[in-house]
Design a protein around this nucleic acid. Sequence first.
DNA 1: GACCTGAGTTCCGTAAGGGAACCCCAATGG
DNA 2: CCATTGGGGTTCCCTTACGGAACTCAGGTC
Lengths: 150, 150
Amino acid sequence: MQRTDFHEMACSIARTLDVVGEPWSPLILRDVWAGISRFEQLQADLGISRKVLTERLNHLVERGIIDRRPYDRRPRYEYVLTDKGTELVDVLMVMVGWGDKWLAGAAGPPVLYRHHACGQFSNVDLRCARCGEPMHARDIDLVPGPGAGA
Amino acid sequence: MQRTDFHEMACSIARTLDVVGEPWSPLILRDVWAGISRFEQLQADLGISRKVLTERLNHLVERGIIDRRPYDRRPRYEYVLTDKGTELVDVLMVMVGWGDKWLAGAAGPPVLYRHHACGQFSNVDLRCARCGEPMHARDIDLVPGPGAGA
DNA sequence: GACCTGAGTTCCGTAAGGGAACCCCAATGG
DNA sequence: CCATTGGGGTTCCCTTACGGAACTCAGGTC
């Protein structure tokens, strides 16, 4: 894990990385999103060490990304996305779009999205929340906001 | 950094993490995007160790995210985004949206985006590339694609 | 020729990940 | 009613990677 603390930086990227920037955290989020929700399943699917998996799960629960809840009268637990965590999946969806385009190669994308609204296999596209036009890195200027440091 | 190799996984998230999943890499990308492009500037801005900065820059150059190019007849170099790297910034923009909403607190967002197309301060929104309707985690089904493993 | 500056490299101490073994608890089951 | 099973973690040791400071190198400048 990063030794330098990203939490204090006046940057929403750094602060987001403080939540899911550690190795494995995004993949844990992916698995929980995809329905792999129990400790043993996660450990087997990811091949992560049990120690680190415990740490990451606790961290994600503390930050309100996932909830830990019992699913049996025996001490058995599963992890489910909170609203906060579900919205964080947006980041993963965009990563998938980029990875599909630049890294998937001839085999094609490993996973497809079927959009409920239109029923088609599709991908995400970034648009301006105000005018609806495409909004990518080259389409904007960065301006200091109210929460900027001195 | 991660000891387990994400590169071989049949998952575009894992493969993207193999490129920018190491600690600091996303922040380096952010800085280069924002115009902080030289070694000394990056080191000072991030507070990263010089050794790790060197490793990360080399890694990003190898993966085609940034280019290293001389800006002087002396051995001086700057780093600039490639097209591949510029598209990867989409991921950062979505992270900013999430961080602004869930982590910024009362101070408000540290940075604002002014959209060239409409001139307004805005944020990104995820839409279906086919039908244009909103597309978030709950709006899709995941289906194995052609590049899925056995 | 001495000095400066940007861009790294080297070295050491510490902290984090990997892996295997171990532990705890509730529900069977013989 | 004691032994077993199986999920969900802990504990331990080993190795690797980060942080930080010192050092190097090459071209320009005074």
